[in-house]
Protein backbone atom coordinates (compact mmCIF):
# COMPACT_ATOMS: atom_id res chain seq x y z
CA UNK A 1 0.00 0.00 0.00
CA UNK A 2 1.31 3.41 -0.96
CA UNK A 3 1.75 6.00 1.81
CA UNK A 4 0.17 8.64 -0.38
CA UNK A 5 -2.20 7.96 -3.22
CA UNK A 6 -3.95 10.81 -5.00
CA UNK A 7 -6.52 10.09 -7.69
CA UNK A 8 -7.60 12.72 -10.19
CA UNK A 9 -7.57 15.54 -7.66
CA UNK A 10 -8.63 19.00 -8.67
CA UNK A 11 -8.64 22.17 -6.61
CA UNK A 12 -10.73 25.03 -7.93
CA UNK A 13 -10.77 28.47 -6.35
CA UNK A 14 -14.03 30.29 -6.79
CA UNK A 15 -13.19 33.95 -7.15
CA UNK A 16 -16.75 35.08 -7.84
CA UNK A 17 -16.62 35.90 -11.55
CA UNK A 18 -13.99 33.38 -12.52
CA UNK A 19 -13.07 29.93 -11.40
CA UNK A 20 -9.39 29.23 -11.20
CA UNK A 21 -8.15 25.69 -11.50
CA UNK A 22 -5.08 25.65 -9.32
CA UNK A 23 -4.78 21.92 -9.66
CA UNK A 24 -6.37 19.69 -12.22
CA UNK A 25 -6.49 15.96 -12.58
CA UNK A 26 -3.37 15.10 -10.62
CA UNK A 27 -2.84 11.43 -9.87
CA UNK A 28 0.26 9.97 -8.28
CA UNK A 29 1.56 7.68 -5.60
CA UNK A 30 4.33 8.17 -3.06
CA UNK A 31 5.63 5.08 -1.29
CA UNK A 32 6.84 4.92 2.25
CA UNK A 33 10.50 5.93 2.56
CA UNK A 34 10.61 8.03 -0.60
CA UNK A 35 12.35 11.40 -0.76
CA UNK A 36 10.45 13.51 -3.27
CA UNK A 37 11.12 17.02 -4.45
CA UNK A 38 8.38 19.05 -6.08
CA UNK A 39 9.40 21.78 -8.51
CA UNK A 40 7.69 24.26 -10.72
CA UNK A 41 7.33 27.99 -11.27
CA UNK A 42 5.06 30.01 -9.02
CA UNK A 43 1.41 29.50 -9.87
CA UNK A 44 2.09 26.00 -11.10
CA UNK A 45 -0.04 24.48 -8.33
CA UNK A 46 2.74 22.98 -6.26
CA UNK A 47 1.78 24.88 -3.10
CA UNK A 48 -1.85 23.91 -3.50
CA UNK A 49 -0.73 20.33 -3.92
CA UNK A 50 1.36 20.54 -0.74
CA UNK A 51 -1.56 22.02 1.21
CA UNK A 52 -3.71 19.12 0.14
CA UNK A 53 -1.02 16.57 0.99
CA UNK A 54 -0.67 18.28 4.36
CA UNK A 55 -4.41 18.03 5.04
CA UNK A 56 -4.59 21.81 5.36
CA UNK A 57 -6.86 21.95 2.33
CA UNK A 58 -9.29 19.57 0.67
CA UNK A 59 -9.48 18.78 -3.04
CA UNK A 60 -12.57 20.06 -4.85
CA UNK A 61 -12.82 16.69 -6.55
CA UNK A 62 -10.87 13.47 -6.58
CA UNK A 63 -9.59 11.38 -3.69
CA UNK A 64 -6.56 11.50 -1.44
CA UNK A 65 -5.65 8.36 0.47
CA UNK A 66 -3.13 8.73 3.27
CA UNK A 67 -2.06 5.29 4.56
CA UNK A 68 -5.21 3.90 2.97
CA UNK A 69 -7.73 6.34 4.55
CA UNK A 70 -9.59 8.71 2.30
CA UNK A 71 -8.84 12.01 3.98
CA UNK A 72 -10.61 14.14 1.39
CA UNK A 73 -13.90 13.48 3.18
CA UNK A 74 -12.82 14.17 6.75
CA UNK A 75 -14.01 17.02 8.97
CA UNK A 76 -11.92 19.96 10.12
CA UNK A 77 -11.11 18.45 13.50
CA UNK A 78 -10.41 14.99 12.05
CA UNK A 79 -7.93 16.60 9.65
CA UNK A 80 -6.33 18.37 12.61
CA UNK A 81 -5.92 14.96 14.26
CA UNK A 82 -4.28 13.54 11.10
CA UNK A 83 -1.91 16.53 10.88
CA UNK A 84 -1.02 16.06 14.49
CA UNK A 85 -0.23 12.36 14.33
CA UNK A 86 0.92 11.60 10.79
CA UNK A 87 2.34 14.75 9.26
CA UNK A 88 5.20 17.05 10.19
CA UNK A 89 5.51 20.48 8.59
CA UNK A 90 8.63 22.45 7.84
CA UNK A 91 8.06 25.94 6.48
CA UNK A 92 10.19 28.44 4.62
CA UNK A 93 9.79 31.00 7.42
CA UNK A 94 10.39 28.42 10.17
CA UNK A 95 7.10 29.38 11.87
CA UNK A 96 8.29 28.89 15.40
CA UNK A 97 6.32 30.58 18.17
CA UNK A 98 8.17 33.70 19.31
CA UNK A 99 9.01 34.11 23.02
CA UNK A 100 8.80 30.35 23.36
CA UNK A 101 11.89 28.22 23.97
CA UNK A 102 13.13 25.66 21.48
CA UNK A 103 11.96 22.75 23.59
CA UNK A 104 8.52 24.30 24.15
CA UNK A 105 8.18 24.79 20.40
CA UNK A 106 9.05 21.15 19.86
CA UNK A 107 6.61 20.06 22.57
CA UNK A 108 3.76 21.96 20.93
CA UNK A 109 2.32 19.09 18.81
CA UNK A 110 2.36 16.83 21.89
CA UNK A 111 0.24 19.38 23.73
CA UNK A 112 -2.61 18.53 21.41
CA UNK A 113 -2.54 14.78 21.89
CA UNK A 114 -2.80 14.59 25.63
CA UNK A 115 0.66 13.56 26.80
CA UNK A 116 1.77 14.64 30.25
CA UNK A 117 4.54 17.16 30.85
CA UNK A 118 7.23 14.54 31.57
CA UNK A 119 6.49 12.49 28.45
CA UNK A 120 6.40 15.66 26.37
CA UNK A 121 9.76 16.78 27.62
CA UNK A 122 11.41 13.41 27.03
CA UNK A 123 10.09 13.13 23.48
CA UNK A 124 11.05 16.72 22.71
CA UNK A 125 14.62 16.22 23.94
CA UNK A 126 14.87 13.07 21.86
CA UNK A 127 13.68 14.94 18.77
CA UNK A 128 16.09 17.80 19.40
CA UNK A 129 18.93 15.25 19.67
CA UNK A 130 18.03 13.90 16.24
CA UNK A 131 18.61 17.34 14.73
CA UNK A 132 21.73 17.99 16.83
CA UNK A 133 20.34 20.80 18.98
CA UNK A 134 20.29 19.16 22.41
CA UNK A 135 22.62 21.91 23.68
CA UNK A 136 20.18 24.71 22.96
CA UNK A 137 16.86 23.49 24.23
CA UNK A 138 16.20 26.56 26.38
CA UNK A 139 17.07 29.14 23.73
CA UNK A 140 14.42 31.39 22.27
CA UNK A 141 14.02 31.51 18.47
CA UNK A 142 15.56 34.99 18.30
CA UNK A 143 18.70 33.62 19.99
CA UNK A 144 19.15 30.99 17.29
CA UNK A 145 20.53 31.27 13.76
CA UNK A 146 18.29 30.59 10.77
CA UNK A 147 19.70 27.10 10.35
CA UNK A 148 19.20 26.33 14.02
CA UNK A 149 15.64 27.63 13.90
CA UNK A 150 14.93 25.37 10.96
CA UNK A 151 16.36 22.44 12.90
CA UNK A 152 13.98 23.23 15.75
CA UNK A 153 11.16 23.23 13.22
CA UNK A 154 12.32 19.84 11.92
CA UNK A 155 12.49 18.49 15.48
CA UNK A 156 8.90 19.73 15.94
CA UNK A 157 7.92 17.83 12.77
CA UNK A 158 9.62 14.68 14.07
CA UNK A 159 8.42 14.72 17.64
CA UNK A 160 5.16 12.89 17.03
CA UNK A 161 6.90 10.17 14.99
CA UNK A 162 5.22 11.46 11.86
CA UNK A 163 5.52 9.12 8.89
CA UNK A 164 5.49 12.04 6.47
CA UNK A 165 7.43 15.30 6.54
CA UNK A 166 6.27 18.07 4.21
CA UNK A 167 8.78 20.84 3.69
CA UNK A 168 7.69 23.93 1.79
CA UNK A 169 10.87 25.62 0.52
CA UNK A 170 12.70 24.78 3.75
CA UNK A 171 15.91 26.41 2.54
CA UNK A 172 14.33 29.52 1.04
CA UNK A 173 15.49 31.76 3.91
CA UNK A 174 18.91 30.18 4.38
CA UNK A 175 22.34 30.67 2.83
CA UNK A 176 23.64 27.89 0.62
CA UNK A 177 25.96 26.32 3.20
CA UNK A 178 23.20 26.09 5.81
CA UNK A 179 20.79 24.95 3.10
CA UNK A 180 22.97 22.00 2.32
CA UNK A 181 23.28 21.14 6.02
CA UNK A 182 19.51 21.12 6.34
CA UNK A 183 19.13 19.00 3.22
CA UNK A 184 21.74 16.56 4.52
CA UNK A 185 19.72 16.32 7.70
CA UNK A 186 16.67 15.40 5.61
CA UNK A 187 18.69 12.81 3.72
CA UNK A 188 19.90 11.31 6.98
CA UNK A 189 16.37 11.19 8.45
CA UNK A 190 15.19 9.60 5.20
CA UNK A 191 17.83 6.91 5.00
CA UNK A 192 18.30 6.17 8.72
CA UNK A 193 14.72 6.47 10.01
CA UNK A 194 12.95 5.68 6.73
CA UNK A 195 10.83 8.83 7.02
CA UNK A 196 9.02 9.89 3.87
CA UNK A 197 9.98 13.41 2.88
CA UNK A 198 8.37 15.73 0.34
CA UNK A 199 10.20 18.99 -0.35
CA UNK A 200 8.97 21.87 -2.48
CA UNK A 201 11.81 23.89 -3.96
CA UNK A 202 12.81 26.23 -6.76
CA UNK A 203 16.41 25.25 -6.83
CA UNK A 204 17.87 22.36 -8.77
CA UNK A 205 20.79 21.81 -6.38
CA UNK A 206 18.31 21.40 -3.50
CA UNK A 207 16.15 19.04 -5.54
CA UNK A 208 19.31 17.08 -6.27
CA UNK A 209 19.28 15.79 -2.67
CA UNK A 210 16.01 13.93 -3.32
CA UNK A 211 15.49 10.57 -4.99
CA UNK A 212 12.51 11.57 -7.11
CA UNK A 213 11.53 14.83 -8.72
CA UNK A 214 8.01 15.88 -9.73
CA UNK A 215 7.55 18.97 -11.89
CA UNK A 216 4.33 20.97 -11.91
CA UNK A 217 3.13 23.38 -14.57
CA UNK A 218 -0.29 25.05 -14.80
CA UNK A 219 -1.85 22.76 -12.25
CA UNK A 220 -0.69 19.44 -13.68
CA UNK A 221 2.26 17.15 -13.35
CA UNK A 222 4.50 17.53 -16.39
CA UNK A 223 7.47 15.47 -15.31
CA UNK A 224 7.96 12.71 -12.74
CA UNK A 225 11.43 11.17 -12.70
CA UNK A 226 14.12 9.53 -10.67
CA UNK A 227 17.04 11.70 -9.66
CA UNK A 228 20.27 10.30 -10.94
CA UNK A 229 23.06 10.93 -8.51
CA UNK A 230 26.39 11.64 -10.11
CA UNK A 231 29.14 10.47 -7.88
Amino acid sequence: MALIEVKEICRTYDLGDVKVNALCGVSLEIQKGEFVSIMGPSGSGKSTFMNILGCLDKPTSGNYFLEGTDVSKLSRDELAGIRNKKIGFVFQGFNLLPRTTAIENVELPLLYNGLNAKQRRELAIEALKKVGLQERIDHYPNQLSGGQQQRVAIARALVNNASLILADEPTGNLDSKTSFEIMELFVRLNTEKNITIVVVTHENDIAAFSKRMIKFLDGSVVNDMKVIKNG
Binding site: L56, R76, A80, G81, R83, N84, K85, P109, Y112, N113
Partner: peptide, 9 residues
Protein backbone atom coordinates in the same frame (compact mmCIF):
# COMPACT_ATOMS: atom_id res chain seq x y z
CA UNK B 1 0.95 27.27 13.34
CA UNK B 2 -1.07 25.69 16.12
CA UNK B 3 -3.71 24.55 13.67
CA UNK B 4 -1.11 23.12 11.27
CA UNK B 5 0.44 20.99 13.99
CA UNK B 6 -2.90 19.64 15.12
CA UNK B 7 -4.82 22.07 17.36
CA UNK B 8 -8.52 21.34 17.04
CA UNK B 9 -11.35 23.89 17.09
Amino acid sequence: IRMAIGAKT
